[in-house]
Nucleic acid binder design. Structure first.
Lengths: 218, 218
DNA sequence: CAGCGCTTGGACCGTTCGGTCCACTCTCTG
DNA sequence: CAGAGAGTGGACCGAACGGTCCAAGCGCTG
């Protein structure tokens, strides 16, 4: 009964022409935007239809059901999130670079008025208990995001800037959690302050792990 | 059209007998549990009705509409969350005490199998954009929670264990964000590790703010 | 014990939802 | 230029939803 696999399901996708791809893209983009601010359950297919100027049959021509559309939205939001931070994520190799990334994340959130929180976080919160396939996709998404952070921290470690017991993977996971928690509180309070504070505290935790002629602590 | 006020609306509550109070409580408890794992939109009034063995008219006898019931759930979840941590929250006055609190939060999450994340966080994520009244309630809820953390950190500061520029309010907010982010990732990955890591990183950040050499006379 | 009001049961309603279906149009190709 | 298949429009459906309504129970007090 239960589909155990969360891996790429071999759906036989119909061939898409240029026009078809454009329409499909329009649908996913609109659905992503709507879901970002209204949630999955709060976004009806008719809403998507209205925004995109498409018909019901088009939605079901490109997606087998609503869950499939949501799956495409998950994928898209991951790409968007990573792309928006790409520059800062690529050059992560020092505390200064980490702070530039922090500023970027804060700026992005301020730009949207703290609305919607993290697109991935919102999807995770809503789908984790109801859609196993989407949950698997989100786990993968968070993991690649974390991996990008890990890569930068690892450079710092290999340079000998970190104390031995500091694991880049662990630090990156903590950093990602700080982003998610900060964005959730920012969304709730409609202020970027919680995000700034959360990131600064996590960054302070990382800095305390830096080898600068003797880290604090015993 | 738009209700600007987010303050306690003076709803004229009907007098409740003991039986009435019990029924109302049963409804709120069941709704809270259902919403915790299915979300607000994913929980229908018929679901609540089925679990509690009540009728439609009872639901609307005790609550003016679904939003009112959700409001009661928000209130209840805040009480539950604070009560579950009460012992550890009361004695917050040292890094050791913070770690006991950390262990408590982790244990609570492990106990429920990382399901549902933080009840307040889940509600916040879902209601922040759609229900201004609920959002205001959640802001208040997070604030009292944070205040409890602040109180402990302030004790540490007044004892002179903290460096001067460390603001207990700010550190507590960062800690709360770590809890929320950690719980969200724990819920998504079905593992307590992200929560542990997030809290440890935030705690490391706080510890780095402690006055070196330890408190005088201790 | 009579009456009042809190309490309960459940039929009913209009709307909205995800999803199906079929007929039609467009575009590319042989 | 004809046919095939991608692409589109929109009526339609059954189920589920939040919400209304009325009549009947139940328990306390005068």
């Amino acid at each position: 009964m239960v589909r155990m696999s969360g891996e790429a399901v071999p759906v036989a996708e119909p061939v898409l022409t240029a026009r078809g791809r454009a329409t499909r893209e329009r649908i996913v983009a609109a659905a992503a935007a709507l879901i970002h601010q209204r949630g999955v359950a709060g976004t009806s297919l008719d809403d998507v239809r209205a925004v995109t100027g498409t018909s019901k049959s088009q939605l079901y021509h490109y997606f087998s059901d609503k869950a499939a559309l949501v799956g495409a939205v998950v994928e898209r939001q991951l790409q968007q999130v990573l792309q928006a931070q790409q520059a800062e994520l690529d050059g992560l190799d020092s505390m200064a670079a980490l702070r530039r990334w922090r500023d970027r994340v804060v700026a992005l959130n301020r730009q949207v008025g703290c609305v919607g929180g993290c697109p991935l976080g919102r999807l995770a919160s809503e789908l984790a208990e109801s859609d196993p396939v989407a949950r698997a996709g989100l786990v993968g998404g968070f993991d690649t995001w974390r991996e990008r952070l890990t890569a930068g921290l690892r450079v710092m470690q290999e340079r000998g800037e970190m104390v031995g017991d500091a694991d880049p993977d662990t630090l990156a996971l903590g950093l990602l959690a700080a982003v998610q928690g900060g964005l959730l509180l920012a969304q709730t309070t409609r202020s970027v302050t919680p995000l700034e504070v959360a990131l600064d505290l996590a960054l302070a935790g990382i800095e305390s792990r830096l080898a600068r002629g003797g880290p604090p602590g015993r």
